[in-house]
Every structure is written in structure tokens, then in C-alpha cells.
């Protein structure tokens, strides 16, 4: 049980917990932020799996641009749980 496997296990537990939290929280702003965190941790797991190209793409696109596009659209909606 070297350090890499313990680190990967910790990251996996945090990812699955955040993914369950997306379905449970009440406000949509929190759900969008949590899905950004899931994408960021997936980028770190890609680096552990020896693929730097995919890690760079996922960090720039999945965790940066998708969250910003969500917030731009969320600004124009008035609802009880936004």
C-alpha cells in the first residue's frame, strides 16, 4: 500500500461524495460549484494515470468554461431555488 494508492483512494472517496451531494443540495448555485469540483478532481486523477494532454484539456474546459457558462445563464433566472 504505497502512497500513490492511498492518495487515489482518498480522491475517489471525495469524488463520489461530491457527486452524491449534487443531487441532494437545495440551491442550484451550490450544485454548479460542486460539479466544477468533480471535474477538477477528475483532472488530478488523469495526471496520476500518466496522461498530461487529457488533464490539461479537462482542467481548462471542464472546470473553467462549463461553470462560467452555467453562471451566465443562471443570472437571468428567478426561481425559489436558484
Amino acid at each position: 500500500m504505497n502512497v500513490t494508492i492511498i492518495f487515489a483512494l482518498l480522491l475517489a472517496i471525495v469524488t463520489v461524495t461530491m457527486a452524491v451531494a449534487v443531487l441532494i443540495v437545495k440551491k442550484i448555485r451550490t450544485a454548479v460549484l460542486v460539479s466544477g469540483v468533480v471535474s477538477l478532481i477528475a483532472s488530478i486523477i488523469y495526471l496520476l494515470l500518466a496522461s498530461p494532454d487529457v488533464a490539461m484539456t479537462e482542467a481548462a474546459i471542464g472546470s473553467g468554461l462549463t461553470t462560467i457558462i452555467f453562471f451566465y445563464v443562471l443570472n437571468k433566472m428567478r426561481s425559489s431555488d436558484v
Binding site: P52, D53, M56, T57
Partner: peptide
Amino acid sequence: TPGGGFQGGSVIATGFL
């Protein structure tokens, strides 16, 4: 090096943001 067209394009869009 690791990188390419899609990664560079996303960084340019982030600068524009």
C-alpha cells in the same frame, strides 16, 4: 510538449473572459 490546439484555444477564451 503536452498541449495542442484545443488546450491553447481554451486558455485564449479564458483570457477573453
